[in-house]
Simulated scan of single mutants.
Amino acid sequence: MGNSPATVTKGETIACNDAKAPRTERGRRTLRKLLDAAAVEFGEKGFHEASVSSITRRAGVALGSFYTYFDSKDALFRALVADMSEKVRTSARSALHDGMDALEIERAALAAFLRFAAEHKEIYRIIDEAEFVDPASYRQHYETIAARITDRLAAGVAAGKFREGLGELEAWALMGMNVFVGLRYVVWGGAEKTPDEVAARVNRLLAEGVLKH
Rank of each mutant, 00 (worst) to 15 (best):
M1E: 11
T7P: 09
I14H: 13
I14C: 11
C16A: 15
D18Q: 13
D18I: 08
A19T: 12
P22V: 02
E25A: 10
G27H: 02
R29M: 09
R29D: 10
K33Q: 11
L34T: 14
D36E: 07
D36N: 12
D36R: 04
A37D: 02
A37R: 07
G43L: 01
G43P: 05
H48R: 11
A50R: 05
V52F: 00
S53L: 12
I55E: 03
A59G: 12
G60H: 03
G64M: 03
S65I: 02
S65P: 02
F70R: 00
D71V: 00
S72A: 03
D74N: 07
F77Y: 08
R78G: 12
A79K: 08
K87H: 01
T90M: 02
S91Q: 11
R93W: 07
G99W: 11
L103V: 12
I105N: 10
E106C: 11
E106G: 09
R107P: 08
A109P: 03
A109S: 13
L110M: 00
A111V: 01
A112R: 00
F113H: 03
F116K: 04
A117T: 07
A117E: 03
A117Y: 05
E119M: 00
E119Q: 09
H120K: 04
E122W: 01
Y124Q: 03
I126T: 08
I126K: 04
D128A: 14
E129T: 11
A130H: 05
E131K: 15
Y138W: 12
Y138A: 14
R139E: 10
T144D: 09
A146I: 11
A146M: 01
D151S: 14
R152W: 01
A154Q: 15
G156S: 06
V157A: 14
A158D: 15
A159C: 13
K161V: 15
R163Y: 06
E164W: 02
G167Q: 11
E168L: 02
L169N: 12
L169C: 13
E170P: 07
A171H: 09
M175A: 05
V179D: 13
F180E: 14
F180L: 15
G182C: 06
G182S: 12
R184E: 04
Y185F: 03
G189C: 02
A191T: 02
A191C: 06
K193G: 01
T194K: 03
T194I: 00
A200L: 00
R201C: 13
V202A: 14
L205P: 07
L205Q: 13
E208K: 15
G209M: 04
V210Q: 04
V210H: 02
